[in-house]
Nucleic acid binder design. Structure first.
Lengths: 97, 97
DNA sequence: CTTTTATATGAATAATTGTTCATATATTAA
DNA sequence: TTAATATATGAACAATTATTCATATAAAAG
């Protein structure tokens, strides 16, 4: 295995690691096709504002979500259709195990 | 969110968690289109036999790999094309961040 | 039968990580 | 300006997890 590939493999595992947490995957799930503020996300998935905010930071720094500020609210949305595709492919896999 | 869906979301995060470890993703990578025994896997990815065996057990119990015994060797291979698809979709995502 | 080779596994350790709690920052309203 | 609301963040704690080391099992060879 080439060294460059090895680096990319590590990056790949880190990408999947982001999807591999129940709070984060719940956040991604509620953001499918939507754009919600932090409190709406927290209420929808029944987690504390703080926990959600911490995980949103991780999702943002991994470039899986983006946000825009509207007044005092911050609205989050999925970065691109890749995120949705990965989510949905995994979802389909579960049906066929 | 329905309760059944919530359970499935948890399962989904657990699926991605399996992909979210560098040793396991390296194993999946070397098994793309191949079938290798434990020692070959370990040598290829430069990890100890024990570490690889431990991770193979996790991959197997998650149904991402299967194996067949040939003499004293145990040959591992990817369970189905889903595993490959998920790996490759993630891989492509990395190119477009 | 004994030795060698391949793999599996349990215990221990180290490291990572997610949540909570308290608090800080920022925006809007009164 | 002061109070209220929305979000972010640092520290601490708890829980999970991956590796190593030693050893067990199992198959083949001598």
């Amino acid at each position: 295995m080439k060294l460059l590939d090895e680096d990319k493999i590590i990056d790949l595992s880190e990408l999947f690691k982001i999807f591999g947490d129940s709070t984060r995957i719940k956040i991604i799930n509620v953001l499918l096709g939507k754009c919600l503020c932090v409190n709406d996300i927290a209420n929808t998935i029944n987690m504390s504002q703080s926990a959600v905010s911490h995980q949103l930071r991780i999702l943002k720094s991994s470039k899986l979500v983006k946000c825009k500020k509207i007044g005092k609210e911050v609205h989050y949305f999925l970065s691109d259709e890749h995120v949705e595709k990965i989510f949905k492919l995994g979802w389909e896999h579960l049906d066929e195990i």
